[in-house]
């Protein structure tokens, strides 16, 4: 099957969907000629999001970060994962998430975040469109483990008043956690990434952790250092302007 490697090609396109805000007046009166006026210069708010990998030996795939409205979620616990979440959870491939509609802005990191390391991503959103942000990244040495932020409200944040949070690991539920050779894309195995087949319980849930070959899973390629506990990431959000 298709093998999406965890060398994580640099994000193809940083899709920044320009916010279209040229909607004219809510026209009850279609006969009025359109009013020509220069729209006021857009006031932007810029946010930096720093992600720190708290795990012992789980590289995080290049982080996908997006701004969107308050109704958008990347996943729902207990519901089947979207294909976009399945792609990032099984293979670290953010392209499905980048292609989502109704993102106000999005950016994907260029490299994996190695254990103990941090990366800062920057997102600019027109002030009137500031609502929620989401973030997602794969735990590379798992079958389909991921972490992220799921529709967190940043409207009303003050400049230079950081918000800190820590987040847990989720299991996309799309690929059985066999830990077997050839099934894990990270450096522990360099196996397969995304595979559209779904052979697990098919709903998103809290990741139960990995077992490893040292703890009784005979076919596992994982070692004790690949185990993890929650939380798996620390996140710092700062509005810079």
């Amino acid at each position: 099957m298709k093998r999406t490697d965890l060398t994580f090609k640099p994000s193809l396109v940083a899709i920044v969907l320009a916010t279209t805000l040229l909607s004219a007046c809510g026209d009850d009166n279609d006969n009025m000629p359109p009013v020509e006026s220069t729209p006021p210069a857009a006031v932007m708010q810029t946010f930096t999001v720093t992600v720190t990998n708290l795990t012992a030996n789980q590289p995080l795939s290049p982080v996908f970060l997006a701004a969107h409205n308050a109704e958008t979620y990347l996943w729902k616990v207990g519901q089947p994962a979207s294909v976009a979440i399945e792609m990032i959870a099984e293979g670290g491939d953010a392209s499905g998430l980048e292609a989502l509609e109704n993102l106000t802005a999005s950016v994907t990191g260029t490299n994996p975040i190695l254990p103990g390391m941090s990366e800062t991503l920057t997102l600019s959103v027109e002030e009137s469109a500031v609502a929620n942000i989401s973030l997602a990244s794969m735990l590379g040495n798992t079958n389909d483990g991921f972490t992220g932020v799921n529709s967190y409200n940043i409207a009303g944040m003050e400049v230079d008043a950081p918000i800190m949070m820590r987040r847990m690991a989720y299991d996309a539920g799309t690929e059985v956690n066999s830990e077997a050779k050839g099934t894990i894309p990270g450096p522990a195995d360099e196996g397969e990434g995304f595979n559209e087949q779904r052979d697990d319980i098919n709903f998103v849930h809290g990741h139960p952790g990995v077992i490893s070959q040292y703890d009784g899973l005979a076919d596992s390629v994982l070692m004790p250092s690949h185990r993890f506990d929650n939380p798996v990431v620390a996140i710092k959000i700062v509005r810079t302007e």
Binding site: V77, M168, G206, G209, I211, G216, L217, N230
Partner: peptide, 13 residues
């Protein structure tokens, strides 16, 4: 079953 019954905290939302 170590493949089914393990968990990490938190366990409920």
């Amino acid at each position: 079953d170590s493949r089914i019954h393990r968990w990490l905290n938190p366990v409920a939302k």
